[in-house]
Design a binder for these strands. Structure first.
Lengths: 101, 101
DNA sequence: TCTATTGTTCGTCAATGATCGAACTATAAA
DNA sequence: TTTATAGTTCGATCATTGACGAACAATAGA
């Protein structure tokens, strides 16, 4: 598998972050990651429906927005939140996403 | 001027809110409102460029997302945040928007 | 009444975004 | 080496969205 590009958080804009989170599937992904801190998930471990291509696209968007990081592990790719970096740049985002209904 | 429709906050989704905030002009509008609590602004008092139609569209989106309320006053329409209602449904949103850079 | 102000609505166009199947890559396991 | 697994990338399609000008509506003021 190819290695992933992760943007420098300094170059991430609030608009991008909002845009990334303006999709129900992507919000689900982020919330699951919030619910299980430190635990990495493979792409197919999220309750998101759609083709492989679509799901891959969602992770790409979240990655470009600086919200997640992806690490190759065998044939899988493991995703975790970029928790502390995002919290530093956008304080309160995680808390907000976690609590909002 | 017509009277405005404001959605019941209960029917507003997080996705809608994120979508509404995924535009630089609309973020600017909300931030200005955050910076001057309680003070109502007319549509043309925001540093947002674009035609009248475009600006009206941005306010429409923010209104449908439950973020702002608009009141007719003469030939103007005055906009304020739906501060407490949104804070109750999406705790931390205002704080997050205010602090993020 | 006439005109200026303020904003909405409509129709249109261009750009973006979500979705998919198909072909592909890389690793693991048989 | 063959097959299965996991995900990416490409190209296409379709829907949504942002932007605009033009026509409109409502109020204020001369």
């Amino acid at each position: 598998m190819k290695k992933y590009e992760h943007p420098d958080i300094r170059n991430v804009t609030l608009t991008e972050v909002m845009q990334a989170l303006s999709d129900p599937s992507r919000i689900k992904i982020v919330r699951q990651l919030l619910d299980y801190p430190q635990r990495p998930f493979a792409c197919n471990e999220f309750p998101v429906k759609g083709s492989k291509a679509t799901i891959s696209h969602h992770f790409h968007v979240l990655r470009q927005a600086g919200l997640i990081q992806t690490k190759v592990e065998g044939t899988k790719c493991l995703t975790t939140l970029r928790r502390t970096e995002i919290e530093k740049k956008f304080p309160g985002l995680w808390k907000f996403l976690d609590k909002s209904c």
